[in-house]
Write a protein that binds this DNA or RNA. Structure first.
Length: 904
RNA sequence: GCCGGGGUGGCGAAAUGGCAAACGCAGGUGACUUAAAAUCACCCGAGGUAACCCCUCCUGCGGGUUCGAGUCCCGCCCUCGGCACCA
């Protein structure tokens, strides 16, 4: 190498040059596929935050970019787009703080994100860029809402919602953590509010069943299954003694859902949730005060309290219901372990066969009646005497004490009892879901307006201050031709105390007159999920003015072939998008039942590993093993002295025998050693800008792919980029110095070189297909080393290296290709092929094992028979030595792999 | 508590049931250099021997299946995610 020109690869100028070339030549513009096979390769598009990209974003984006470039080289027609999920709370809060219009913030943030993505050399078709806040896009988000509305899938409801006064908005259950808002950590209280709700529960079965159509991670499917939470059981109807009449003259009955109708004769009480609508009516006069006090206390208990208090509590209502089959009286109770919003808000208490009911009955002194015994002939007599059961028997078994059903198995009894209930008009087979309808209204400014009008009764012009009353019971859809309904310009974006939101103050926008009558617009906006529910459809035909996308094009491109994004979206985004897709499928707007055929989650990239030592107030170091970490701040176990955690530089750390890290000059002091999630507050965020600045975009891409498996959680380490940076330099030098006159066959090492080339092509091709980028890069490093060791590198060998390298390091690939005398772009060159026969050598080296230990090696021709291999093995000195005086019991010859001898 | 993923050198990691540690970082030695950086070459799990050969041990812990287990089975421990009274 010494006489070769060692000019270092100049990342700044070379990368800028090729990015400009791609832009000028529209290299990655998607062609309409025609006869070619198609590949729709999609990233989860980002929310363009003010902080810009962090290194976690490019991980998934690099993976899809590699696949996109690889597929193009293989002759696929590739759709690989990018856009912006640009509505959202941060821009609005920034607006509230600074008075800058969210539109301005959003435009600036998008420009910054786009610059950063382009600096990484991603091969997006930028002519398809989407912004969910643009009127062109909002038009169709609203159009889809109208479809939902037309089909009765969007309705209004007074819902007890999580109202956050600080944010001035309602939060979804999943946005509330421990009684505080997930964003900002403000207190949340439950208040009834008129909301738009989407009837996702109507699609529960299909959302569950169609998961099987998708090639998704099993864990993600399981999470969606758990979220939908389908359980089959029985709806049981309990008549109530002296039933009050509600809603007309029907006497009140209590419906409860159970998955265990076989335990029906074990019911000893019914428990109602504190939120149960008819609780008051069911309470006896002498219990009214006690019940009211209990309900009030439950209402004030935050989620936090309810989590802390594990013991159950309740108050009797002083009234009874009737067992639907036996007619026995069953006392009614209110208990806060019953959830108000699941099932009917009431449960039948079967203490003998349900852990929670058992706890409750034990605490409240209710009877425990066993009706199931284990169905085990060897232990026939294990019916506990009355009152002696020490834990609930939850497994199915055989029935006892259950009238004519005694003796049946749980399965048979469940069916028989359901039938008996049905015959008595006291119940039916039923399915219950955990999934709830989706609250789809936010009291915010920066979201899509909901395209609905309400009639207004008014004395004059409500915009001018006339009195008015809005009739929310008569929602009127806007006409599709009136879309998009855009946001009014506001000066003040604060939601204010009015739960109707900031838009309620935009009187000129809110009130419209038609045919002399006044109407009011809906002032709620859509949640941020709306835009991301269908953006993958718009990418297919982003400028279509007439419909979400041309049906022909949708048929051509759907479903998405590969969708890559974070596992944090495993449930919400992916479930909501599937729901909308199915509705659009029913409408006839999309041709497939499911949107995303294959899904992969990239793992999280953590900050650099940090070491820390605990110290007490005097500065004395305290071993981690002596620290009680449950306290806040952590304390020393011995005396509960409060401790602080101090960072320790990595070079002051050693590892001890037990595998713990210790202070190098203070052995025995065990350290805290962990990589943490990157966060601003921790100060461990790495920006792609600085990495590109010092190492180049190709090294950034290569490093993130080389760190480990795509799906794994991995700690960042800037120092490790050195390795892939060297790869870039070496590959570049090979291209610069390649000999254009030398053919591979004429090279001195021709046979070995041919084999190395074919094997590397095979390895890289297979690894890219399987998204094993780390091992593909490792193979490229090996090939680079092989070529570097040659005295003269044949042109064809350097070309193969360039072609294999370019999906990972596209700027380098183009530069190598140019150095090798070819016009751009390398992207238009077909992917190299390999010949399996040329991947293998004629001779192989196989180990010879004796009792599991390698004692020798044989160099053999392929395809030898066992007898011959054994003969050769026995002639090896080391093998002969180990066989001496022993009996050969067994030989195992795995052809061309390994020979194992078992001796005694 | 339940459901998932994971525990392999100083570090990131690799390994269709078939030679554990490929590839890379860091470290060490040498070459080049006045010197440093960069680059190049070699070494680099632990212990015994200690110059080499060689031997022994080693994939969180304990069992099992197998000629052969990081990989499969059973029982634990630790760790990271998710869910959490769902009747």
């Amino acid at each position: 190498m010494t006489e070769r020109n060692q000019q270092r690869y100049e990342t700044q100028t070379i990368e800028a040059k090729w990015q400009a070339y791609w832009e000028a030549h529209q290299t990655f513009r998607t062609e309409e596929s025609g006869a070619k096979p198609k590949a729709y390769i999609l990233d989860m598009f980002p929310y363009p935050s003010g902080a810009g990209l962090h290194v976690g974003h490019p991980e998934g984006y690099t993976a899809t970019d590699i696949i996109a470039r690889f597929r193009r080289a293989q002759g696929y027609c590739v759709l690989h787009p990018m856009g912006w999920d640009a509505f959202g709370l941060p821009a609005e809060q920034h607006a509230i703080r600074t008075g800058t219009h969210p539109r301005e913030t959003t435009v600036a943030n998008i420009a910054n994100f786009r610059r950063q993505l382009k600096a990484l050399g991603f091969s997006y078709d930028w002519s398809r860029e989407i912004d969910t806040t643009s009127p062109d896009y909002v038009r169709f988000t609203q159009w889809i809402f109208l479809k939902l509305f037309e089909r009765g899938l969007a309705y209004q409801q007074e819902v007890p919602v999580n109202w956050c006064a600080e944010l001035g908005t309602v939060l979804a259950n999943e946005e509330v953590k421990d009684g505080l808002s997930e964003v900002g950590g403000y207190p949340v209280t439950r208040v009834p509010l008129r909301q738009w709700v989407l009837r996702i529960t109507a699609y529960a079965d299909r959302l569950l069943d169609d998961l099987s159509l998708n090639e998704w991670p099993a864990s993600t499917k399981q999470m969606q299954e758990a979220w939908i939470g389908r359980s089959r059981g029985c709806q049981v109807r309990f008549a109530v003694d002296q039933a009050p009449q509600v809603d007309g003259d029907e006497p009140l009955v209590l419906d409860v859902f159970t998955t265990r109708p076989d335990t029906l004769f074990g019911v000893t009480y019914l428990a109602l949730a504190p939120e149960h609508p008819h609780l008051k009516a069911l309470t006896a006069a002498d219990q009214a005060n006690a019940v009211a006090a209990y309900v009030e206390a439950a209402r004030h208990r935050s989620d936090l309290d309810r989590k802390a208090a594990k013991t159950k509590s309740g108050v009797p209502l002083g009234t009874c219901a009737r067992h639907p089959l036996s007619g026995e009286p069953i006392p009614l109770w209110v208990a806060d372990y019953v959830l108000g919003d699941y099932g009917s808000g009431a449960v039948m208490g079967v203490p003998a066969h349900d852990e929670r009911d058992f706890d409750f009955a034990t605490i409240c002194g209710l009877p425990i009646k066993q009706v199931i015994v284990r169905d085990d002939p060897t232990r026939a007599a294990d019916i506990a005497p009355p009152g002696v059961l020490d834990a609930a028997v939850c497994e199915p078994g055989r029935l006892v004490n259950s009238a004519e059903f005694s003796g049946l198995t749980s399965d048979a009894a469940s069916e028989a009892i359901a039938a008996a209930l049905e015959a008595a008009s006291a119940g039916k087979v039923a399915v219950q879901y955990k999934l709830r309808d989706w609250v789809f209204a936010r009291q915010r400014y920066w979201g899509e307006p909901i395209p609905i009008l309400f009639p207004v009764e008014t004395t004059g012009d409500p915009r001018a201050g006339a009195d008015y009353r809005i009739d929310y019971s008569q929602p009127i859809a806007l006409n599709a031709s009136e879309l998009p309904l855009t946001l009014p310009d506001l000066e003040d974006f604060r939601p204010g105390s009015d739960p109707a939101g900031a838009l309620a103050r935009a009187l000129d926008w809110r009130f419209v007159q038609r045919d002399g009558r006044w109407f009011a617009r809906e002032t709620n906006t859509m949640p941020q999920w709306a835009g991301s529910c269908w953006y993958y459809l718009r990418f297919i035909d982003p400028h279509n003015p007439k419909c979400i996308a041309d049906p022909t094009k949708l048929r051509e491109w759907l479903p998405v072939d590969l969708y890559v994004g974070g596992a944090e979206h495993a449930v919400l985004h992916l479930l909501y998008a599937r729901f909308w897709h199915k509705v659009l499928f029913d409408v006839g707007a999309v041709p497939t039942p499911e949107p995303f055929a294959k899904l992969v989650h990239q793992g999280m990239i953590l900050g650099e590993v940090e070491y820390g030592v605990y110290r007490d107030a005097t500065g004395q170091p305290v071993s981690r093993t002596d620290v009680d970490l449950r306290a806040d701040p952590p304390v020393r176990r011995a005396d509960s002295a409060p401790l602080s955690l101090e960072r320790v530089a990595p070079d002051q750390v050693t590892k001890n025998k037990r595998g713990d890290f210790e202070l190098a000059r203070d052995a025995g002091v065990v350290l805290e050693a962990r990589a943490h999630k990157m966060s601003k507050s921790r100060g461990n965020v790495v920006s792609p800008d600085e990495i590109i600045q010092s190492f180049g975009a190709d090294s950034m891409r290569l490093y993130e792919m080389f760190m480990g498996p795509l799906e794994a959680t991995k700690p960042w380490n800037t120092q490790n980029i050195q390795g892939v940076r060297r790869l870039v330099d070496r590959a570049y030098q090979i291209a610069r110095s390649a000999d254009r006159t030398l053919r591979v066959e004429d090279c001195a090492e021709s046979e070995a070189l041919t084999r190395a080339l074919h094997r590397t092509v095979r390895k890289v091709t297979e690894d890219i297909e399987a998204l094993r980028f780390n091992t593909a890069i490792s193979a490229l490093m090996v090939l680079t080393q092989t070529l570097q060791d040659l005295v003269r590198v044949p042109q064809a060998a350097a070309e193969t290296l360039a072609l294999l390298m370019h999906p990972f390091a596209p700027h380098l690939g183009e530069e190598m290709w140019a150095c090798l005398g070819h016009p751009p772009s390398i992207q238009s060159v077909p992917w190299p092929s390999f010949d399996p026969a040329l991947c293998e050598s004629d001779t192989i080296e196989v180990p010879v094992q004796i009792n599991g230990k390698v004692r020798g090696r044989l160099t053999l021709r392929r395809g030898l028979a066992e007898a011959e291999v054994l003969a050769q093995a026995q002639s090896l000195e080391a093998v002969a030595l180990n066989l001496e005086g022993k009996a050969l019991i067994k030989t195992v010859w795995v052809p061309d792999k390994i020979l194992t001898l078992v001796v005694r």
